Computed example of a mutant assay.
Amino acid sequence: MSDSHQTAARLLVADDNKVNRLLLTRSLELQGHNVKTAENGRIALEMLRSGPFDLMLLDMEMPEMTGFEVLEHLSADTRLRDLPVIVTSSLEGVADIVRCIELGAEDYLHKPVNAVLLKARIGASLEKKRLRDQLKEMVRRFATSEVAQDLQQSGFALGGRRVQATVMFSDIRGFTAIVESQSPEETIELLNTYYTLMFEAITSHGGVVNQMIGDGLMAIFGAPLPLDDHGGCAVRAALDMVEMVGLLNLERTATHKSEIRIGVGIATGEMVAGYTGTQQRATYTCIGDTVNLAARLEAHTKLAQRSILIDPATYGALDGRIPVEALGPALFHGKSAPVDVYAVKEADLAGAH
């Protein structure tokens, strides 16, 4: 019995023939599975949407909603389209079998179903589902929830699309000197703490951290998923980041460690966002003049002696909701004309939320 318990799964049998439902249920329960039944396709869909199942055995000829219609609904539902479906039907035509497979069915078995063959097909389908679930978990672990959702909805494809969004670059000022003054273990601990705080500030305002290089990070607001007021969200995230670093410094000075400072550059505009790399290794990122400007603004925070610098488009998006200071035009590498630079007033940080 231990083997059957190890392979136990939640199965749904959809068949309008009561005898078929009872016999299939008995056979599957003897294999150790937990089985629920539905007498037509409509009920089956309702059950799938209200509770988790690992696999469905689906008859084709049913009242109210046929098996074909059920498969069409499943393929259109991002939450259910990966559910393994084994069709059990008395339909003999090759065209019907092909249609089932094209609609996403995992397998097609003729009635009366051979019990040994059915057990083997269920085992193979559940193993495929287990591997797919592991892959989804890895995506959730190593990608942001927004990127994971985009992958689930749109699928993976190298390339990009034009979007209106806001980009943020940030890093720790004088990080090299900090590294040289402490042990590698202390540096790793500092970075882990730093990224925990920065991720919280960015993601709580709808941003997506898509790059981490040493002490620097890049975040996108408005892609891959649309975000209302992405410019304002990015600035509010930056305010939270500076505030969190200030609170962290209170702890660091209390333990006789040096304070840290960050610089943040933010720019808003059109960019190309998507997956770059190869089929084997890719990342979600964005490129374009707006991205370059955000990076230049972050670097300019050292010269300007300000924590947060924004471009005119981001300034316009704020519409006066957050106090800023006009620093005048600055000429950046790669730009043919000077760019007006604005700094979020650090004296107003506490009251700007």
Rank of each mutant, 00 (worst) to 15 (best):
S2C: 04
R10K: 14
L11R: 02
L12Q: 10
D16Q: 10
K18M: 09
K18F: 05
N20S: 12
G32A: 13
K36I: 05
T37F: 08
T37D: 13
G41T: 09
R42Y: 00
I43S: 04
I43Y: 01
M47F: 04
R49T: 02
G51W: 07
L55R: 02
L57M: 07
L58F: 00
M60T: 01
M62G: 03
E64G: 00
G67T: 05
G67A: 04
E69L: 14
V70E: 08
E72D: 15
T78P: 15
D82V: 05
S89H: 12
S90V: 15
G93L: 14
V94Q: 01
D96F: 15
L103N: 10
D107A: 11
L109A: 10
H110A: 15
N114F: 07
L117R: 14
R121P: 02
K128Q: 13
K129C: 02
R132K: 00
V139D: 06
R141D: 08
Q149L: 07
D150Y: 07
G155S: 09
I172V: 15
I172D: 14
V179T: 09
P184E: 15
E185N: 07
T187C: 07
A201G: 02
I202Q: 13
T203S: 02
T203F: 03
H205Y: 07
H205E: 08
G207I: 01
F221I: 11
D229G: 06
G232Q: 06
C233E: 10
G246Y: 03
L248W: 01
E251K: 09
E251W: 02
A254G: 04
H256C: 08
G265R: 07
T268G: 12
Y275M: 06
G277C: 13
R281I: 04
I287R: 00
D289V: 00
V291K: 12
E298D: 10
T301Y: 10
S307L: 04
I308T: 05
I310V: 08
I310E: 05
T314Y: 01
D319H: 03
I322E: 00
P323R: 12
A326S: 14
L327G: 05
L327R: 08
P329H: 08
F332T: 11
F332S: 08
H333F: 11
P338E: 05
V344I: 06
